[in-house]
């Protein structure tokens, strides 16, 4: 695995607030690497140190083997950046922005094709100020891809988008990865990190809390899984308590919650019910997710 980004002992202090505290990790070529954490965790500071837009106070950053803060122009040719807070002149048109930003790079993508892919081709002659929030965000993504970058940085890619637009954005990010590019993104949506990223770094209060694949992070918790069922007219004694996967059963009227563990947990429960001839409605399994991981590791709820 080729390492494209290497961060060692990164530290950044604003007046007397430690924004990023001794952070070290590597990003591999061709993966979607996500950095998640609540607002103010230090995600943007970290990503902007890697982009060469900020200088670390301590530690070092390597991008393609060089220090991005020292050789910004050369690095900037090979990366694409979508910033969390940025804008364009209000009266610039979409097509104009694409050719203007394209002219800053030695290598250029086909801007018509990019606009097509991002669903902006119809908006080519619309002014920036007349675009909706989602359209602006897509334009910034198109601008981040205008130089066919090897590494693309997305800072809070889907903030402000509705769920449908968010999902469309995920598909797009996967496509970008499948073209062989490396994607580094930050998000404060745990679901986004879980569904989209190959590896996730959880950052809290400037420190790394965990770093692994979403699946490994979740299974490392060894948390109970739950099956929620509605059993109208079920017998008092259920044939489930004897199953080795089942830990306990909670019952309130027709509604039953089965707690258990193991890779295959739902299967035996369903089979046992069918064998006993018990009809069930509304079967729903509940898996632990990255929100639970965050809660377990930091003691705080991510959504607070």
């Amino acid at each position: 695995m080729t390492v494209v980004i290497e961060v060692v002992g990164l530290r950044k202090i604003y007046s007397d607030v430690v924004a990023v505290d001794d952070v070290s990790f590597e990003v591999r070529k061709g993966e979607i690497f996500g950095m998640v954490g609540p607002n103010g965790a230090g995600k943007t500071t970290t990503i902007e140190c890697i982009e060469g837009l900020r200088q670390p106070d301590n530690g070092r950053v390597n991008l393609f083997g060089v220090d991005p803060g020292q050789t910004r122009s050369a690095i900037a040719e090979r990366i694409g950046i979508q910033l969390q807070d940025s804008s364009l002149p209000t009266r610039i048109r979409v097509g104009e922005a694409m050719s203007l930003f394209g002219s800053f790079y030695a290598r250029q993508a086909d801007s018509g094709e990019l606009l097509e892919r991002l669903g902006l081709i119809e908006k080519r002659s619309a002014s920036f100020s007349n675009l909706s929030g989602g359209q602006k965000q897509r334009l910034f993504i198109a601008l981040a891809l205008i130089n066919q970058p090897e590494v693309v940085f997305f800072d809070e890619l889907t903030t402000g988008l509705d769920p449908q637009a968010r999902r469309a954005m995920w598909d797009l990010v996967r496509q970008i990865r499948d073209e062989g590019r490396t994607v580094f993104l930050t998000t404060h949506f745990m679901e986004e990190a879980e569904r989209l990223c190959d590896r996730v770094l959880i950052l809290d209060d400037g420190k790394i809390v965990a770093l692994d694949t979403p699946e490994a992070l979740i299974s490392s918790l060894e948390m109970e899984k739950r099956i929620v069922l509605t059993l109208p007219g079920a017998p008092e004694k259920l044939p489930l308590s004897d199953l080795p996967q089942v830990d306990r059963i909670e019952r309130s009227g027709d509604r039953i919650v089965v707690y258990g563990h193991g890779e295959r947990f739902a299967g035996p429960v369903i089979t046992a019910l069918e064998h006993a001839g018990i009809d069930f409605l509304d079967l729903r399994t509940e898996q632990p997710n990255l929100d639970d991981v965050f809660l377990a590791l930091t003691g705080r709820d991510m959504r607070e």
């Binding site: 837009l53 900037a76 950046i81 910033l83 940025s86 364009l88 800053f104 790079y105 910034f140």
Partner: peptide
């Protein structure tokens, strides 16, 4: 706007 320009080469 200047931030966005600065992110280019």
């Amino acid at each position: 706007v200047l931030r966005r320009f600065r992110a280019t080469p």
